[in-house]
Design a protein around this nucleic acid. Structure first.
Lengths: 116, 116
DNA sequence: GCTAAATGATACGGGAACGAAACGAATTTG
DNA sequence: CAAATTCGTTTCGTTCCCGTATCATTTAGC
């Protein structure tokens, strides 16, 4: 059975979750950063700077900088590809997984509490 | 019947919608700006700078600047409160309604296409 | 080997957002 | 009616993100 949302429910869900994120003290990421994070955690590896840039339709420095920022937050980590040392492989971390699990819980809770 | 999402579905939904927004050519809003927009459109009026600042737990200049930005995009508009001319009332626009309708459609479509 | 291509990082200038503080206008208080 | 308060805006200095162009390293092609 497909997930069927009314327009108002969709907006309310986004609103509730956004409020929770803005109000909470979780690391505040830009839209792009969060999208990069989700891509790394949800799409099949390996993830490279170039690949992510193409996937998200942004320039390479955007990815490099996002990795700097989120790397400092321990949400992601870099690793040299030893088979081709030009490449950098972007990998998940325990902290990142935990962060997204918490986020998913927020979404689920808000979705469950949605008025019909 | 409540909307029941699995953790993976919640993340996938956010990912899909985020990808659509980053990739698309819609106005590029920050997380806070988008949250302000949703608040104005979903919560009962009237909305003031001070009220929104308190609601979102941000400083007043954040609201003022967001109104500048989104006002230029025609997503919101300001009006002086004639009963107390110190106040500014924030109102919806046709363009803003349309923008959010389109966004809601994106969410609905992505939710419907979600794997079980 | 030597050159060309590919990959990610960096430098640079510009623009946008931030918080704190100060400000002007409008209203309320005493 | 003068002083204090309230409200939104502006200013200031800082920080962060952006795209373009360039750089160093590594690999591939001849």
């Amino acid at each position: 059975m497909a997930i069927d949302l009314k327009a108002e429910q969709a907006l309310k869900l986004w609103h509730e979750v956004s409020m929770a994120m803005v109000h909470g003290n979780e690391p505040d990421l830009t839209q792009r950063q969060f999208t990069i994070l989700l891509t790394v955690y949800l799409e099949p590896p390996p993830h490279t700077v170039r690949g992510l840039a193409a996937r998200l339709n942004v320039t390479k420095p955007v990815i490099t900088r996002a990795l700097d920022t989120m790397g400092a937050m321990k949400l992601l980590k870099r690793r040299r590809d030893e088979r081709d040392r030009r490449n950098v492989i972007i990998q998940r971390t325990v902290e990142g997984s935990l962060f997204l699990e918490t986020f998913a819980d927020t979404v689920r809770t808000k979705a469950r509490e949605l008025p019909r």
